[in-house]
Design a protein around this nucleic acid. Sequence first.
DNA 1: AGCCTCGTCGCAATCGATTGCGAAGGGATG
DNA 2: CATCCCTTCGCAATCGATTGCGACGAGGCT
Lengths: 371, 371
Amino acid sequence: MARQGARAGTGTHTGRVPVTLAQIARQAGVHVSTVSRALSTDEDVRGGVATETATLIRTLAEELGYQRDPAGAALRTGRSRMLGVLVPRLTDIVLATVYEGIDAAAAAAGYHTVVANTSDDPQLQRRRADALLARRVDGLVLGDARSDSDLVAELARQRIPLVLVSRRLPGRVSVTTDDLLGGRLAGEHLLDLGHERVAVVAGEPYASTGAERTQGFLDAFAEAGLPVPESHVVSSPFDVPGGRAAAEHLLSLRPRPTAIFAVNDFAAIGVMAAVRDAGLLVGRDVAVVGYNDVPLAAALPVPLTSVSSPMYRMGELAATTLVNMLNGKPGRSRRLRPTLVARASTLAGGPLDTDGTGGTGGTGGTNGTNG
Amino acid sequence: MARQGARAGTGTHTGRVPVTLAQIARQAGVHVSTVSRALSTDEDVRGGVATETATLIRTLAEELGYQRDPAGAALRTGRSRMLGVLVPRLTDIVLATVYEGIDAAAAAAGYHTVVANTSDDPQLQRRRADALLARRVDGLVLGDARSDSDLVAELARQRIPLVLVSRRLPGRVSVTTDDLLGGRLAGEHLLDLGHERVAVVAGEPYASTGAERTQGFLDAFAEAGLPVPESHVVSSPFDVPGGRAAAEHLLSLRPRPTAIFAVNDFAAIGVMAAVRDAGLLVGRDVAVVGYNDVPLAAALPVPLTSVSSPMYRMGELAATTLVNMLNGKPGRSRRLRPTLVARASTLAGGPLDTDGTGGTGGTGGTNGTNG
DNA sequence: AGCCTCGTCGCAATCGATTGCGAAGGGATG
DNA sequence: CATCCCTTCGCAATCGATTGCGACGAGGCT
């Protein structure tokens, strides 16, 4: 029965007592239900209380430093005002950036978020989703949707409000970049530079991102009358070692491709390493294009040409979309427009870089604010 | 009054009805209080119910797919089983890794975590902390403690259980690496290589990490009879542009330093860029040492010598420490031991690297699991 | 003047879990 | 055989917020 008194925020006054609706009601000389209504954000509800009474209650609440108890509210309403977020890995700066956007937009709408890593592992995805649901989140933002898993379908069948982000899935509400277009931009860029023998590091087949970026790229070359043979398209993990291994294979082909498109910047960094190891020069002997334009891309010794995608904005939109759905509005998928940022990895010897060494770019943030 | 039925997890059976303690009690023919006790994790409490009854109830709960409603439990007990985490930025891979450790350990102890970015901004720190407290988190893990702010003191005065991670503050429970030792390791490494004129990119003065790493480094050189002049120690942001700007200044000094220690890997990457821009070769003309040994350090064109710190483990320990404190045990600070990983950025021309170009290392994960 | 309507607000139930207290029962002991 | 103790479990209060319903009073309308 011993309950420690609720703690007040760092902000305002108040001493020890847990300030509840009843406290305010007593001081205002009204019933708690009136206080509840006066403090509600719902317009219709607050309309039920006289303006004068409402302002009195609100100033009183302010003075006492009242903060609604989420547990009480959640118990009564059945909604927790918490959103669950699933990502492959938070140490991946792409998803970390998306998550920052999600959290910012959610906070602006009065929601908190709880995030969990799934390592792109179907079993972990299920476990983490269940854990989030056990926490009674009001909805889910999934950043790790796999086309070879039925987890999303199951969740949808349970009528759990959810929005996909970064990756798409047919028939689901999602917020992504237009990966087909992004891949096409990469292809057209290389076509403009005169490349005819190109290869693709295509990422994991279960991720729509890799698949669609690859498809868009292939479309561009096919339409130009230079179809890319299947042997020049290899899948790989979305990381440095993955890109490196894939590129080692591609560079062993004869005739050797003059350009490689990697569907992810980290894989592209691995590609660049493999190019160097083969005794070739990135940008002159082999052009490299990445995807996402992470801050590091511009800071590399040979700055990386990359398709820039609005990651933070994607997160924001995903969160607001989900919140709208929770408010009864229908969810609508969005595809954001990517742009290509050309740098030395495709332009060495060209207008932007004449000596092939590159310099370190350096406008990029690549931040490390820790210590 | 219309409450949507609680949703069951993806896992087990159950149909529509929200399965509560009352449900189970009815089916088991006992009172809800008995069910509550039988399902409690607290040994003393569960002892109060007969083993036979307990197992019956537990299997029944399992079959029905019962999941405790966090709101109800939180309302009654006053504890939410949620931990708040504050970090400067989640897009910083160092703190992201620490956070992954925190979350994993918290989950293992039955806690969820809620994380928020503060951008190292004192105002944001306060706002985010208040928001977390309003969510009634049971305790706080702070990864962004500033020596020039009294936020931590205020929180402590309010008797809010908290543990610092990554950065220390005098008199507070913290889990960090031994940054004095880490700085010393960097210094001794350069001394071993015969360097006599060195410089330090010291990070932000308000962060204990930068300050102590710098101090340890300076101690090593002072004890060797080669004190580093104050002009060779400059503070800077913990990011690439910050390190770059600081290094540009340091490289303009005459005589030029032969080695630069940056208290953070990202700053070190900026240093390397400045060295290249000055027409010098990293590792031969100027040695560079970083700190944290992020996966990228090994994957750079010139692999970066860095002081490796157990970031994930630090997070784990911080979380378990906080959970212990919540269980009444006294909190004890921990300082984990860092190790130095020597690579080409200090060894070019030496045993590990003979041509100065480095190759791209490549065992490092530098993962990007997204798409 | 009487009746109806609308604006305000109080009443009380309700959400789900926890826990101090007390009661009932069985077994052990004097 | 009576008493006491211990084990096991039920009772009911409680946490804080929300909300349908009903009551009351003032004002307007006929």
